[in-house]
Amino acid sequence: MINVAIVDDHRILTEGLQSLIAESAIAKVVGVAHSAAACRLSLAFWKPDVLLLDVGLPDISGVDFCKEIKEQFPNIRVLALTTHSEYTVVRQMLDNGASGYLIKNAMADEVMAGIEAVAAGETFLCHEIDLLMKRPAEKNVWLSPRERELLLLISEGLTNTEIAEQIFLSPETIRGYRKNLLLKLGAKNTAVLVKMAIEQKLI
C-alpha cells in the first residue's frame, strides 16, 4: 500500500483526490494540507511515500517548496499537481527534485498511474506534459516583435516580395528573417514552421 499525502489549497480537488485514492486499493491518503506551512508541521508524522504537491500554493511557490522537501526528506517522491503547463515551470520542478508532473484535469487512471510510477522510483509525466517536454524547439524560443509579425504574415501565405512591400523592407532582408526563423524553430520548411508556430502559440 502506497502512503500518499496531498498539499493543495483547493479543497474540492483534495476531497476528490482522497476519494479516488481511497477507492484505488493501491494507495491510501495519510495526510492533507492546504498550505506549505501546514505541510511542514505534519510531514515528519505522515511519512508519505508520495507527496502530491500543488505548484501554486498560497504561502510559497511549489517550485521552492519541492526543493525544501527533497533536501529534508530525500526519500519522499514528489508528484507535482498543477494547472501550469509551461515548459519552464515543469523544468524547474523536475530540476528541484520532483519525480513526476500531473495536470489538474488529468484523468483518474492517469493520476493513479502517476502515483504508482513515482512510488516505484520512476519519473512520470502525464500525456500533455510529456508532449510538451518532447518538443525540440520548446527549449527557449524567443522571438522579437518583428519576427512575430513576419511569422504571422508567412502563416497567411504571403511571399517574400509581398511581405517586403507590406512592412517596407527589402525582399533580401525578408529572406534573411525567414531563414533565421527556420533555424530558431528547427523547422525544415515553411509549412513545418507555420505548424510549429501555431502549436507553440507564437502567433
Rank of each mutant, 00 (worst) to 15 (best):
D9Q: 05
H10D: 04
I12Y: 02
I12H: 04
S19A: 10
A22T: 14
I26H: 06
I26D: 07
K28W: 00
A33S: 13
H34S: 12
A38N: 12
R40M: 06
L41V: 13
L41E: 15
L43K: 11
F45S: 14
P48R: 03
P48W: 02
D49Y: 05
L51C: 08
L51E: 04
D54P: 00
D54H: 09
L57I: 06
P58L: 05
D59Q: 07
I60L: 12
V63Q: 04
I69T: 08
K70H: 13
K70F: 09
K70N: 14
N75A: 08
I76P: 03
R77I: 00
V78Q: 01
A80T: 07
T82H: 08
S85W: 00
Y87P: 08
Y87Q: 12
V90G: 02
V90K: 06
N96C: 08
N96Y: 05
N96D: 06
S99D: 01
G100E: 06
K104H: 07
K104Y: 09
K104T: 10
A108F: 00
A108P: 15
G114N: 12
I115R: 13
I115M: 11
A117N: 08
A120D: 15
G121C: 12
E122M: 11
C126K: 04
C126L: 07
H127M: 01
E128N: 14
E128V: 12
L132V: 14
L132K: 12
K134V: 01
K134D: 06
P136E: 14
A137P: 00
K139D: 10
